[in-house]
Design a protein around this nucleic acid. Structure first.
Lengths: 180, 180
DNA sequence: GTCACTATACCGACCAGTCGGTTTTCTGAA
DNA sequence: TTCAGAAAACCGACTGGTCGGTATAGTGAC
């Protein structure tokens, strides 16, 4: 049986959640605490500042990317397909955390920018190992970014057709016909 | 010779600029006025509220997309290539405005979300006319979004290899080999 | 006179962070 | 097993500062 999430986990979840759905501006300490079911004092007990909370979010992303890269390295044959399709699953812990950190990066948070660059480098490396063709790796990563970008824009707007799983499958098939 | 920009233009430019480089949070009325070289009173003389300023930015995007779609419609043969490569030019008025509005959309600004969805629909339509294959259009648009997403992340971080023009040309060539 | 501002002062709302105090949980001796 | 005391977890009022917006007196060009 899974142990219930700790308050610290719930606070990071709440921060992530608000960044995702309402953006950086809405992610106030009060809002985060309320979403986590804690008072503001409860929040500041665990995180002395908002930066500390952000740092915890960054650590979470680092861990999730470690796991993701390990999965891709374990099965190089499906690594590219896995990379593209997993960009679609906006509800996965990795994608959620990724989008949340991206929101912070767009608010000119230098550490978030640096972290995202590191993550991209790691994905590039493991895709290079799996595919062996630099331009194809770039193509796959751009597709993943495009899907991810579309998915992250669905705050209030309608879901664009590009992010329909069946469409993505056909696009992957099209890309699969490229000889390189 | 070009007429010097009006104060109204400079104010919209400044808003766009700050959204691009420093994010939504940094785009305060004081900061916008200062960047435009106007006093705060001068700003509020032209725009009664921040929402009015945003509306002006939305109007600008609508105009720029009109022009862009017209260019693509004028030469269907190169429409897809044009769409992908122009996503690269982060300094073009269209891309700048597009990124700026995207920043607002991520701050849960419903009108910005709706506008972006409309723009995407228009691009989809003109690409469909030019290419005639829905999945290929989706592929092209995802590539454009990926490039655009990467480009918009280069606030403080290093420029990713994906956005190198020569790489993009080779990727376009790869996609050009797909038979559909 | 009016247009297009400048300069400055101000208000109320909101927000990050602090602090004194309270409740809950753990620990170990009787 | 009980219970005192310590430590951890948490509460919520408060502070200082920022931001959007309002108001107002004044200035130079046409």
């Amino acid at each position: 049986m899974a142990t219930p999430p700790t308050t610290v986990q719930r606070l990071i979840d709440a921060y992530e959640d608000i960044l995702l759905t309402d953006g950086e501006r809405a992610a106030t300490l009060d809002a985060i605490a309320m979403r986590a079911g804690v008072s503001k004092g409860g929040l500041t007990y665990h995180f002395k500042s908002k930066d500390e909370l952000a740092a915890a979010l960054f650590d979470r992303l680092r861990l999730l990317v470690d796991e993701d890269v390990a999965i891709m390295r374990a099965d190089p044959a499906t690594a590219a397909t896995y990379y593209v399709t997993s960009s679609l699953d906006v509800r996965s812990p990795l994608e959620r955390c990724n989008v949340a950190v991206t929101r912070l990066a767009q608010g000119s948070h230098p550490e978030a920018n640096e972290l995202l660059a590191q993550c991209r480098t790691r994905w590039f490396e493991v895709l290079m190992e799996a595919m062996g063709h630099e331009d194809m790796v770039h193509l796959v990563m751009l597709l993943g970014d495009g899907i991810y970008f579309n998915a992250s824009l669905t705050g209030t707007g309608a879901m664009p057709a590009e992010t329909d799983p069946a469409t993505i499958d056909r696009i992957i098939a099209l890309v699969g016909t490229i000889r390189y």
